[in-house]
C-alpha cells in the first residue's frame, strides 16, 4: 500500500489556515470528520497530539507527517494540507512546516501503516516534488503530482 492507494481529493486542504501546530492538526482532523462524520474528533486529536508529545513529526524541508495508530479509525486515513507560509511545528531543521500529511491507522494495520508512511517519505524526498507541492493551488494539483 502506498500514498496513491489512500489519498482522496476530499481530504486535501489548500490552503491550511491555522497558524499553530495544534491548530493545523485540528484543522486537518476537522476535514476528516466532515467527510467521515462517524469518527470521534476529540479522540483523533488526542491520539495525534499524544504522539507529538513523544517527538515532533515536523521533519525537514517543510514536511510534517503527524500520525497515530488509534482504535478510533477503522481504516487508514490520510489528510493532506498545504499552508501558504511555513508554520512553527518543532521541526528538525528549525524551520517551519508547510506540507502536512496526517496519517491515522487502526491498531491492526501495522504493515499498511508503515508502507503508507514510508511512501510519503519517499515521495516528498525530492526537492522537485516539494517545489511542485508548494506551487499546488488545488486538490487536483496535488492528485496530479501523485498520479501523473
Amino acid at each position: 500500500m502506498t500514498i496513491a492507494d489512500v489519498i482522496k481529493k476530499e481530504l486535501i486542504k489548500i490552503p491550511v489556515v491555522a497558524t499553530t501546530k495544534t491548530g493545523v492538526i485540528e484543522e486537518l482532523i476537522d476535514l476528516l470528520v466532515s467527510v467521515r462524520p462517524n469518527l470521534d474528533r476529540d479522540e483523533l486529536v488526542s491520539a495525534v497530539l499524544a504522539r507529538e508529545t513523544l517527538g515532533s513529526t515536523g521533519l525537514v524541508d517543510g514536511i510534517a507527517i503527524p500520525h497515530a495508530k488509534t482504535a478510533a479509525v477503522d481504516s487508514i486515513a490520510l489528510v493532506v494540507g498545504i499552508a501558504k507560509e511555513p508554520i512553527e511545528f518543532d521541526s528538525q531543521d528549525g524551520k517551519g512546516s508547510q506540507f502536512f500529511f496526517l496519517v491515522l491507522a487502526p491498531e491492526q494495520e501495522s504493515r499498511s501503516y508503515i508502507e503508507v508512511l514510508a511512501s510519503i517519505a519517499r515521495a516528498t524526498n525530492s526537492s522537485y516534488m516539494r517545489r511542485l507541492l508548494a506551487a499546488s493551488e488545488s486538490a487536483d494539483d496535488v492528485l496530479a503530482l501523485i498520479f501523473n
Binding site: 521533519l59 501495522s110 508502507e115 508512511l117
Partner: peptide, 25 residues
C-alpha cells in the same frame, strides 16, 4: 519490512520504540 521501519526511524517519522513495537506486530 524492516527496511521501511529503518527508513522511518532515520527520517525521524518513527521513534525507536515505535520501530520495535511495529516490528513485533
Amino acid at each position: 519490512n524492516t527496511r521501511a521501519l529503518r527508513d522511518l526511524v532515520s527520517a525521524r517519522i518513527f521513534l525507536e520504540f515505535e520501530e520495535q513495537e511495529y516490528q513485533r506486530d
